[in-house]
């Protein structure tokens, strides 16, 4: 049953990895504005249909 050391070890390493990713995303400001992106993602389509070829150089 020595495999317990490995499984627990691996599971904790994976958990810590995700934890670090979470902290990083908080630091980068990902959760500061949770509303605007939900509106913004709807815009791209509008531009493509209205602007025809010019649509690609849009930046968000």
């Amino acid at each position: 049953m020595e495999v317990v050391y490995i499984t627990i070890g691996v599971s904790i390493i994976v958990a810590i990895f995700f934890f670090i990713v979470f902290i990083k995303s908080v630091k980068s400001g990902q959760y500061e504005d949770t509303y605007t992106p939900s509106v913004r993602m709807l815009f791209d389509d509008e531009l493509v249909s209205k602007d025809k070829p010019k649509g690609e150089n849009q930046q968000i």
Binding site: E32, D33, T34, T36, V39, R40, F43, E46, Q59, I60
Partner: peptide, 24 residues
């Protein structure tokens, strides 16, 4: 509002990026 302000680059080519934070 979000849409037009984020497309400012079309009105002024010096603007490279504009981004709205709606709650703020």
């Amino acid at each position: 509002c979000i849409w037009v302000l984020e497309n400012l680059s079309k009105l002024n080519d010096g603007v490279t990026m504009s981004m709205v934070n709606f709650p703020e």
